[in-house]
Nucleic acid binder design. Sequence first.
DNA 1: CCCTTTTCACCTAGGTGGTAAGAT
DNA 2: ATCTTACCACCTAGGTGAAAAGGG
Lengths: 183, 183
Amino acid sequence: MIITKAGRRMFPSVRVKVKDLDPFKQYYIAMDIIPVDSKRYRYVYHSSQWMVAGNTDHSCITPRLYIHPDSPCSGETWMRQVISFDRVKLTNNEMDDKGHIILQSMHKYKPRVHVIVHSAKLDLAQIHSLPDEGVKTFIFKETEFTTVTAYQNQQITKLKIDRNPFAKGFRDPGRNRLEKNIF
Amino acid sequence: MIITKAGRRMFPSVRVKVKDLDPFKQYYIAMDIIPVDSKRYRYVYHSSQWMVAGNTDHSCITPRLYIHPDSPCSGETWMRQVISFDRVKLTNNEMDDKGHIILQSMHKYKPRVHVIVHSAKLDLAQIHSLPDEGVKTFIFKETEFTTVTAYQNQQITKLKIDRNPFAKGFRDPGRNRLEKNIF
DNA sequence: CCCTTTTCACCTAGGTGGTAAGAT
DNA sequence: ATCTTACCACCTAGGTGAAAAGGG
């Protein structure tokens, strides 16, 4: 996943469905992203894989919480829709003041989804960390990813270009012909 | 104000500041638009004014409520910002299903702003009408306007073009030269 | 005749990876 | 040598009034 100073959307975006909420209770739904380990990685081109390239200490950093913009909302409404986190932005700027999720490049991460029971004390404009109770957290192994500032191999670049509507400008078939003719 | 079937933004947008809320209570803030009278108007070009052109019965129509997208939010947060209704859309389509505010063309209207105390029963996704209590309503005489499907005189057209960033394409000075040379 | 609808060029606003220069 | 930054062309997405066509 490319991360920049200004912030880039996470793509493909995390999308979930929820069940077994109380239809009449109010919930926040939120996402954060935590390190998979404390390793720094580098991509070894000739063997086409990520290799450990050192250690990092994530221990003192509390990950930022991204509250889904529909929050708070009734259980009934949440359960009726696919919940998409397509507007969350990732940044490598540790001083970010736009509320984006801050990550370090060349590290492995996994998103978490939190379902938070609304209580009178919670304010959408002020929640910056998870409350102590009333929270259920879910992770999905298949959503793990590695952060970069530029893609390291052409398979991932192609995948991104083919799937993301905003990258349609790079799908020009003439653009690929050159590469294909190399073979 | 131009209204269309698809819905157009209200411009200039209604912007308000609020004071004397309880900083720790939660509030919804909403807008609706009600008729100034039950008259239909037409614009008389040679006298440059709107004239009564018949009666209409608005009595059976409950105006649609536009909930400010930041709702619900704490009094403290509401008071700290200018509250702008720049995303509300107006339509002349009585069958509209996109939640836009429905108005009739060639009528006079005035926006109202409502400050609504949050109660456990209120759900952002389900409020479609004003609750019976816990509501304070404000009107501002200077926000009255007349609806049209095409502008009736060049002063208002010029005002709209000059102020709205999306109409910059019509500001081209060459465009006005033709009209000016008529005199 | 008067008002409405449809389509359009021309904007704002913002999301892509590429590329060359910069930084360490 | 390796990673990052700044800027770019090229997209998506959507908000303007103009103009011509439509409708009663």
